[in-house]
């Protein structure tokens, strides 16, 4: 079967530093894949390459077998490759409803409408409310985003991506900065995704990684060190060495 997302020899360097070096990843459809690695291993660089925020120096990216290496970020989203950001990237002046409504409008191909007001189609309202409800944002949906509590903003960060109707979802440390008690809420909405949606998760919280992922890749200094099931990764002495050597337990 064609993998949902595949990279072949992906490479990117900043000056002399190779932030991603010969990265070949393969995510089957419906995969729950995690990417872990110490700080500075190049996880976010890899995600920026996948989403098109950065251009690779070499290598190829395939989405459902089609080459998307040179595609602009918004074109990739239209093909179903959607990401979230480690640091919230929201629309501070818009309400969650307006933000999500805009993403849903785009997915339904209504974003170039100039004559009808936003949300005049019932489908936009239905789907926006469904996404907001899934992330517990209904009670704050018409307050400006800039005034929301951090936890709510974090949920909106992911809700916005879900509203785009991803077939492949890239999550960049979704639980970053969220207190431990609220982390389950963050991933609950992701876990509720249909089985055929492919998810790549970057995360520091090992608890979360091991609960969520069915496969794990370990990135060290821009290279894939190893890949395997959570059990294999947990037992791998090289992985332990990397984490212990780096000061993480």
């Amino acid at each position: 079967m064609t993998p949902a997302l595949e990279t072949i020899g992906l490479h990117r360097s900043f000056g002399g530093l190779a932030a991603a070096s010969d990265v070949s990843l393969r995510l089957e459809r419906g995969a729950r894949h995690a990417l872990i690695g110490p700080n500075g291993a190049g996880k976010t660089t890899l995600l920026n390459l996948l989403s098109g925020v950065l251009a690779p120096s070499a290598g190829r990216i395939l989405l459902d077998g089609a080459d998307i290496t040179t595609l602009a970020p918004d074109r990739r989203v239209r093909r179903g490759l959607v990401r979230t950001f480690q640091v919230n990237q929201l629309f501070p002046a818009l309400t969650p409803l307006q933000s999500v409504g805009l993403a849903v409008s785009r997915r339904l191909g209504l974003d170039t409408q100039v004559w009808r007001r936003i949300g005049s189609r019932p489908a936009v309202i239905d789907q926006s409310v469904e996404v907001l409800a899934r992330f517990g944002l209904l009670d704050v949906m018409d307050r400006p985003t800039r005034g929301l509590a951090y936890g709510k903003q974090r949920l909106l960060e992911i809700a916005l991506a879900i509203a785009c109707g991803p077939r492949v979802l890239l999550l960049d440390e979704p639980a970053a900065g969220v207190p431990e008690g609220e982390r389950d809420e963050i991933l609950a909405g992701v876990a509720a995704l249909p089985d055929d949606v492919t998810v790549l998760l970057i995360e520091h919280d090992m608890d979360l990684v091991f609960r969520f992922a069915r496969r794990i890749s370990v990135l060290v200094a821009g290279r894939i060190l190893t890949e395997g099931t959570p059990a294999e990764i947990a037992a791998d002495p090289r992985v332990r060495a990397v984490y212990l050597g780096d000061g993480h337990a």
Binding site: S51, V53, A72, P73, D74, R75, V77, R78, V82, R83, F85, Q89, L90, F91, P92, A93, L94, L102, A103, R106, R107, D111, L160, A161, A163, C164
Partner: peptide, 12 residues
Amino acid sequence: GNPLRTAAIGIP
């Protein structure tokens, strides 16, 4: 307001 995120929800 946020060109990075706008592109990330599929809007050119």
